[in-house]
Design a protein around this nucleic acid. Structure first.
Length: 316
DNA sequence: AAAGACTGCAACCGCAACCTT
DNA sequence: GAAGGTTGCGGTTGCAGTCTT
């Protein structure tokens, strides 16, 4: 970075800095920047700031243009479809807001970040609290997991997701120890474990959420998390959940937590990494035919998701 | 009606990566 | 290769508007 060598340069810099405005943009400033951008297009931002007659730094101009003035920006609240997509993409990408924004036309990374940090996070947390309070005999986070395993209410799984990501004991967790245990039954054609052992780590909650989203698709409700339970039943000799969706099955969640602990200890010693697409099989993630939602090409968007770059999960 | 608490969001900050000289 | 300059990103902050008491 620049480190001015002499006092004169320093003073000049300070004088320049002192003139620069900060804080909220006035309508006049917006107009200046908008006009300049429409006339001249994008270029070097510090030049733009200067040439447009703005007492702002280039960085500030860039931010204002990208987050507010750009003509292709979509205004207004997020639709439920966008919300679903954000939750889904966040489960894959984490806090890579720019990458998430790249898959939501007309939305900015800042907007999505704010939306996540205020609306989504809070909503999921509330739902999680509600779901666990109805199971007061089961402690956290078990209550949440139990609830998620038993029912498929709208946000059970994402509530679990949030619960686990905010819990230090299960922040970055692993799920799969060997190929016999497949956390993604609907995706089993894609899920594979390297040499019988997962060679990296990923969020335990994420895999559960993947199952949730994969089973539901957009707007679908399967009621019970059947494939997950079937996976357990077929492969692990753990009794499947029987009867109604409200009966807890201690064996199932005990197994999951034990497995989780085992995997964690394995992964702590692992030095390799695994690609997320190997795990979730994104291109086969979405069931059903084409989606038509609002004005967006959701099918295209989802296809676009399949082109996500590989993500290497780091072992903690 | 007023004051304090809460919320949502625009904008800033620091950092890292990349490009240019 | 080093240093300066720019861009882009994610985390954080500050403030205006809204809600609650």
């Amino acid at each position: 970075m620049r480190k001015p060598g002499d006092q004169m340069v320093k003073e000049k810099l300070n004088n320049t800095k002192a003139k620069l405005r900060k804080g909220l943009w006035s309508p006049e400033e917006d107009e200046k920047l908008m006009n300049y951008m429409l006339m001249n297009g994008q270029g070097c931002w510090s030049d733009i700031a200067r040439n447009a007659g703005l007492q702002r730094c280039g960085k500030s101009c860039r931010l204002r243009w990208i987050n507010y003035l750009r003509p292709d920006l979509k205004r207004g609240a997020f639709s439920s479809q966008e919300e679903e997509l954000i939750i889904h993409l966040h489960s894959i990408l984490g806090n890579r807001w720019s990458q998430i924004a790249a898959r939501l036309p007309g939305r900015t990374d800042n907007e999505i970040k704010n939306f996540w940090n205020s609306t989504v996070k809070k909503r999921l947390k509330n739902i999680n609290n509600n779901s666990t309070s109805s199971q007061d005999s089961i402690s956290e986070p078990r209550g949440a997991v139990m609830q998620g395993l038993i029912t498929m209410n709208e946000y059970d799984m994402t509530a679990m997701y949030l619960d686990s990501t905010s819990s230090s004991s299960s922040s970055v967790q692993a799920m799969v120890m060997n190929s016999q245990f497949n956390p993604f039954p609907p995706l089993d054609n894609k899920f594979s474990v390297v040499n019988g052992t997962i060679a990296g780590s990923f969020d335990f909650s994420t895999c559960l959420q993947q199952v949730d989203m994969a089973n539901r698709g957009f707007g679908q409700d399967y009621g019970v998390m059947e494939p997950y339970v079937m996976g357990l039943e077929n492969d692990l000799s753990v009794p499947a959940l029987e009867g109604t969706a409200t009966e807890p099955n201690n064996a199932v969640y005990d197994y999951i937590f034990d497995t989780k602990a085992n995997i964690n200890s394995q992964l702590n010693n692992s030095t390799e990494s695994i690609k997320v697409e190997d795990i979730v099989g994104i291109e086969n993630h979405w069931q059903g035919d084409s989606f038509k939602m609002g004005e967006l090409d959701w099918e295209g968007l989802l296809a676009n998701v399949s082109s996500l770059p590989y993500l290497d999960f780091q072992v903690e």
